[in-house]
Amino acid sequence: MSAIRVPVVEKIFNANDRIANENQSLMAQNNVYSINIMASPGAGKTSFILQTIHRLAGEFKIGVIEGDTAPVTIDADKVTAAGMPAVQINTGGECHLDAVMLSEGLSQLPLGELDLVIVENVGNLICPAAFALGTNINLLIASIPEGDDKPYKYPNIYRGLDVLIINKTDLLPYVTFDMDYFTRGVEMLNPGLKTFALSCRTEEGIQPWVDWLKLQILSAKQG
């Protein structure tokens, strides 16, 4: 027996990234715009999705894929009640959605009829950051009560973002949250990141986000 060293140099998430690319092509072929929504538990993902759906429902057909660690359909039920097709993916205890799970979710949606696919990832600031899904954008909802130090503690998730939503701005008068400190952290990790500050409860600030999103959907439809 002789020990031999074999060079590899392969990224550990390569296999996931390949499937993410396939998801991306599939959605592009159908002229569907897609969003991967990440956040910690309780940041307001479902409220944000419902607010977004309500404002787009007249113009666009939207499908929602809900990732959950346990077989509950509460979030999917809320979306279905809003009149949109929803698929619930139970990750079986896994802390994130990966590209394979998304591809299974996509296969259950009528992609040809849709303009927008919203993916609600599992509530977690660590694991979802590592798994590309193949969506057009990665979006994080950071909420005020979580504190202003999150970019410093979870740099990974901020690195890969295309859009940042700062939710629950109506709580700013009641909690200690240094917005300058927060945004400086974001700026270090992701300079110039597209950011919308809003409150899903008071609905303040939601319209600029929806207007921006409309433009993205329309340009995706043009192929």
């Binding site: 027996m1 002789s2 031999i4 060293r5 590899v8 140099v9 998430f13 700026e187």
Partner: peptide
Amino acid sequence: SFHVRIVAGEEFYVDSIEIEKEE
């Protein structure tokens, strides 16, 4: 300054493996 660029620290890969072969 907060205007920074991350140069390194995000690596995550299998660099090499050590194997045995039957002679």
